[in-house]
């Protein structure tokens, strides 16, 4: 079995007196694609934010290849460089061009040479079909294009793990595909990823393992085929039913 890239043990997260996640443990192995599903507000996004220490945690620990991820550690920026994160609303920097958005972090934090990173950035942009947009400004791009740039911005750091936080939730339906295709591609290349999504057919296709998060904890954990065809728990069945529509009085064809 491959080595664990990320290990979360007994994680507890509270906002004031409201518990979001309780005693949650999870391991993600090298090259694995873990998809997290669950109803809105179940703490999926919070979990991703905890992994990147954008939220402080009230219990347990999170380790990236053995290194403790903690709010008050000096090495937090270095650890974050190894964790790529893509947000729901892209969060490109509006005052920088597409290329500058991608170059900012590697040049400033990894002290890599501009020329070097630039070549890599252009190559990555070409792979996602956006090479000609390198000198555009974020506001000139469509949502789908912005999200692909955001993915490149995360990739250029050569992260050990990628976190996708409902990256298609803000997109118009016709743009969802172009973004998901990029992610499927990354999965094929063997990248380690945690994906939070509401796109069930995508989840089924891309995941090595599906996790249902409900009531502050992991409720069900299985391979995608099992999850979608033979869910074990009542909650999982109920969750999957929310994606089905039926008309009671419609004549059968």
């Amino acid at each position: 079995m491959a080595e664990a890239v990320l290990s979360i043990s007994h994680l507890t997260k509270r906002f004031d007196d409201q518990t979001i996640l309780e005693d949650l443990s999870l391991e993600v192995r090298e090259g694995e694609v873990v998809v997290i599903v669950g109803s809105s507000g179940c703490g999926k996004s919070t979990l991703l934010r905890c992994i990147n220490a954008l939220e402080d945690i009230q219990g347990g620990e999170i380790r990236l290849r053995g290194d403790l991820i903690s709010h008050n550690r000096k090495n937090l920026p270095e650890l974050r460089q190894k964790i790529g994160m893509v947000f729901q609303n892209y969060e490109l920097f509006p005052h920088l061009t597409v290329l500058e958005n991608i170059l900012l972090a590697p040049v400033k934090t990894q002290k890599r040479s501009r020329q070097n990173v630039r070549e890599e950035a252009l190559a990555l942009l070409e792979r996602v079909g956006l090479k000609e947009k390198a000198d555009s400004w974020p506001r000139q791009l469509s949502g789908g294009q912005k999200q692909r740039v955001a993915i490149v911005r995360a990739l250029i750091m050569h992260p050990e793990i990628l976190l996708f936080d409902e990256v298609t939730a803000a997109l118009d339906p016709e743009m969802v595909r172009e973004v998901l295709d990029v992610i499927v591609n990354l999965a094929d290349q063997g990248k380690t990823m945690i994906i939070v999504t509401h796109e069930m057919s995508f989840a089924r296709a891309v995941a090595d393992r599906i996790i249902l998060l409900e009531d502050r904890r992991i409720l069900e954990e299985s391979d995608p085929e099992t999850f979608f065809t033979a869910p074990k728990t009542e909650q999982a069945k109920k969750f999957l039913r929310t994606f089905e529509f039926n008309r009671k009085n419609k004549a059968e064809a």
Partner: peptide, 8 residues
């Protein structure tokens, strides 16, 4: 947050 998540 998105800048911090890049490791800045």
């Amino acid at each position: 947050e998105s800048a911090l998540s890049l490791g800045l």
